[in-house]
């Protein structure tokens, strides 16, 4: 009590002004210290993007989609659905081509606007193990691009162009998660071989004005052995983890909800700590539960899709001035 008295007396005499300022400033300083922008030491791991040049990657994506209509309305009996269901039962697609990435814009906060475009596409489809593999017409997808706004970590801030690629009657499904996997969020520092590093992040894909696909990624990164072909100075990181998705389509003509869960793993190879992507290979296994709704909002149908995907992108060649995604022009 005595200590408190002395303390209060001193504060009320003479030192009142500066202490008042201090009391105002301390929370502000504390707030600034705990803000995400300045949390922890400066990141030592980030992508570099070449300026004024295209980065080119070859890619391959192979996926298997097993679709089951597990719940149908009674009036579905008037349709001859069996042939359609048989065609959706086990669909294996393969696509390959080139991914061109260019740095189009630097935003005021230092984040970058990238254009990622797919070209020289080839694809094929096979139904079941023993079905004949048939070529797919992917001409409509050739040259299509997605604009991505990313931070130094590869964190996706915004994206645009999905409505021109995704959806039925568009061949974008053969690319799987190619665009998202071309920009994967990196941990703040390279993981040590002894201690894996966990990273959680979210991605949002605004398909159109009525649908945003939100995913939460929880990945654990480990140091991995760089491929011998990459030479000295390459950094390899293996990751594995879980992805959750909850999306709701609010378009009046296609009311649906999706709950998805996936296990993912992959290997990222960078040229060095602050350098370009050399390669990224990934596998994922998704289970999607899609509920469709009728006119009164009641569940009308339910579809379960199991999607297995294996993909890889490999840098072809790029020359130009390197630009860290965290730096300003």
């Amino acid at each position: 009590m005595a200590v408190r008295l002395v303390h209060q007396d001193r504060s009320s005499v003479g030192l009142g002004g500066p202490r008042w300022i201090l009391r105002l400033l301390i929370p502000l300083i504390l707030g600034a210290l705990i803000s995400p922008a300045s949390a922890g030491p400066r990141r030592s791991l980030q992508y570099l993007f070449p300026m004024d040049q295209l980065e080119s990657f070859s890619f391959e994506v192979e996926s298997v989609a097993e679709t089951q209509l597990v719940r149908k309305p009674a009036d579905a009996a008037r349709f001859d659905l069996a042939p359609v269901e048989a065609r959706l039962l086990d669909v294996r697609t393969r696509s390959q081509g080139r991914l061109d990435r260019s740095l189009a814009r630097v935003f005021r906060d230092g984040s970058l606007g990238l254009i990622v475009r797919v070209v020289d596409l080839q694809g094929s489809v096979q139904r079941g193990d023993e079905g004949a593999r048939e070529p797919l017409e992917l001409g409509g997808l050739n040259g299509k691009s997605v604009a991505l706004r990313v931070h130094a970590s590869g964190e996706l801030l915004d994206s645009h162009g999905w409505s021109h690629i995704l959806g039925a009657q568009r061949p974008g499904s053969v690319l799987g998660d190619l665009f998202l996997q071309s920009i994967l969020r990196l941990p703040r520092h390279p993981p040590k071989s002894s201690s894996p590093m966990s990273v959680t992040f979210r991605t949002r894909v605004p398909v159109d004005g009525s649908l945003q696909r939100d995913r939460t990624w929880t990945l654990t990164y480990r140091r991995a052995e760089a491929p011998s072909a990459c030479g000295k100075g390459c950094l390899a990181m293996a990751y594995e983890g879980e992805v959750l998705e909850r999306s709701a389509d609010t378009h009046p003509a296609r009311p649906m909800e999706l709950r998805g869960k996936a296990s993912v793993s992959g290997l990222i190879v960078l040229r060095s700590r602050r350098s370009r992507l050399v390669s990224h290979s990934w596998t994922s296994q998704w289970t999607h539960e899609v509920k469709t709704k009728g006119s009164e909002g009641r569940v009308r149908g339910e579809v379960v899709q199991v999607l297995r995907e294996e993909g890889s992108i490999r840098a072809l060649a790029s020359e130009g001035t390197d630009r860290s995604s965290g730096a300003r022009p």
């Binding site: 489809v125 039925a168 296609r254 649906m256 909800e257 899609v290 579809v303």
Partner: peptide
Amino acid sequence: VRLPLLTLPPDLGLGELRM
């Protein structure tokens, strides 16, 4: 954009999609 929450093969016919 049609049925964007479903992963459907690109060779699915228009009639099948409508059904």
